[in-house]
């Protein structure tokens, strides 16, 4: 009798602790892997909920994760896109994981895939699948207005360390990435504008 009671208590406490830990990162890599969406293949966006995207962010093995939310119709998004791809090329070996999340409408998926191919993207990227905008935005950051592009930098533990709205230059992205990688991320809102 004691063992089932203890098992139930353990399960309850684990559930409470998981709820307290919040939606960003699961405590176990196994859970994060399970929650990640199945990739659709290179140059083809994979539909993913915000929870699934965060599961990708939280997968272990990165020193820093840059999550960029973009759309093909968004001029500043398109303008900064090559720099994001270059950033990945330059820093992947040093532990950067770049997660690209398109918020294009479903009808624009062919244009998204074309754009990704033009940009030489040969890694998995994601298309926001369904859900309420308000929840989507606030899950990523309550400080995000919903304007695009939006870029979030997480540390290797999946904790959000930097965020900005609007287009950034390569130098700005690189500097802010390095601050997170080095554990020195001073807030700086003056250099990026849309």
């Amino acid at each position: 009798m004691r063992r089932p009671a203890l098992a139930a208590a353990v399960a309850l406490l684990l559930a409470v602790a998981l709820a307290l830990a919040g939606p960003a990162c699961a405590p176990s890599p196994r859970r994060a892997e399970k929650a990640a969406p199945r990739p659709a293949g290179p140059h083809v966006v994979t539909p993913a909920s915000v929870e699934e995207v965060l599961a990708v962010v939280c997968q272990p093995g990165a020193r820093a994760v840059v999550l960029n939310v973009w759309g093909t119709w968004c001029g500043p998004c398109r303008e900064e896109f090559p720099d994001l791809v270059k950033l990945r090329r330059d820093y992947e070996r040093r532990g950067l994981r770049l997660v690209l999340l398109s918020v294009d409408f479903d009808s624009e998926v062919p244009a998204v895939n074309r754009f990704l191919a033009e940009q030489g993207v040969d890694f998995e990227t994601y298309l926001r699948a369904g859900g309420d905008d308000d929840k989507f935005i606030n899950t990523l950051s309550p400080l995000w207005s919903g304007a695009l592009p939006a870029t979030f930098i997480y540390d290797g533990a999946g904790t959000l360390r930097d965020f900005w709205e609007g287009k950034a230059s390569y130098a700005q992205m690189e500097r802010r990435l390095l601050k997170v990688m080095e554990g020195k991320n001073e807030p700086d809102s003056t250099e990026v504008s849309s």
Partner: peptide
């Protein structure tokens, strides 16, 4: 041992962290 790292050391939700460059 099971619960302590989850309750104390688990990374907080992304949304709970302060942003570096907030919106207007």
């Amino acid at each position: 041992l099971l619960v302590a790292p989850l309750a104390a050391g688990a990374p907080p939700a992304a949304a709970a962290e302060p942003a570096a460059a907030p919106a207007p």
